[in-house]
């Protein structure tokens, strides 16, 4: 029997990263400030999680401007979307396997 835990992605092993990915799955892109409000965490904490996801090719950063203010938005990459879907499936399998 295959152990479903093997399919759980270590990268998503945190509530904050799950939150980030959930938001990016249902929105075309999400700004840094919106993510901060959604997850109610500090700038530094959010930035470090975003960096880890970006370095692993899960998300992409877009820098733009609203007027003169910089507006940084994030979006999930194709790889990221696939990995997150697989993670959700693994979670579902975990629940079913023990029933």
């Amino acid at each position: 029997m295959i152990n479903p835990i093997e399919n759980l992605n270590k990268l998503f092993d945190s509530r904050i990263r799950l939150g980030i990915m959930s938001a990016l799955m249902v929105n075309a892109d999400v700004s840094f400030n919106d993510l901060k409000e959604l997850l109610t965490i500090t700038d530094g904490n959010l930035a470090s999680h975003l960096k880890a996801l970006e370095e692993n090719g899960i998300i992409k950063v877009q820098k733009g401007f609203i007027g003169r203010k910089t507006n940084t938005t994030y979006l999930a990459t194709k790889t990221g979307e696939k990995a997150f879907r697989a993670h959700i499936e693994a979670l579902e399998k975990m629940i079913r396997s023990t029933k």
């Binding site: 835990i5 509530r15 799950l18 939150g19 990915m21 959930s22 938001a23 799955m25 249902v26 929105n27 999400v30 919106d34 959604l38 959700i88 979670l91 579902e92 975990m94 629940i95 023990t98």
Partner: peptide
């Protein structure tokens, strides 16, 4: 917490975050 309970909580968290960020 059992792995099953943990997975269930994670899924509920995902659902909540998806809703909150888009609606």
């Amino acid at each position: 917490m059992s792995g099953q309970q943990q997975s269930l909580d994670d899924l509920q968290h995902i659902k909540r975050m998806m809703e909150r960020s888009s609606r």
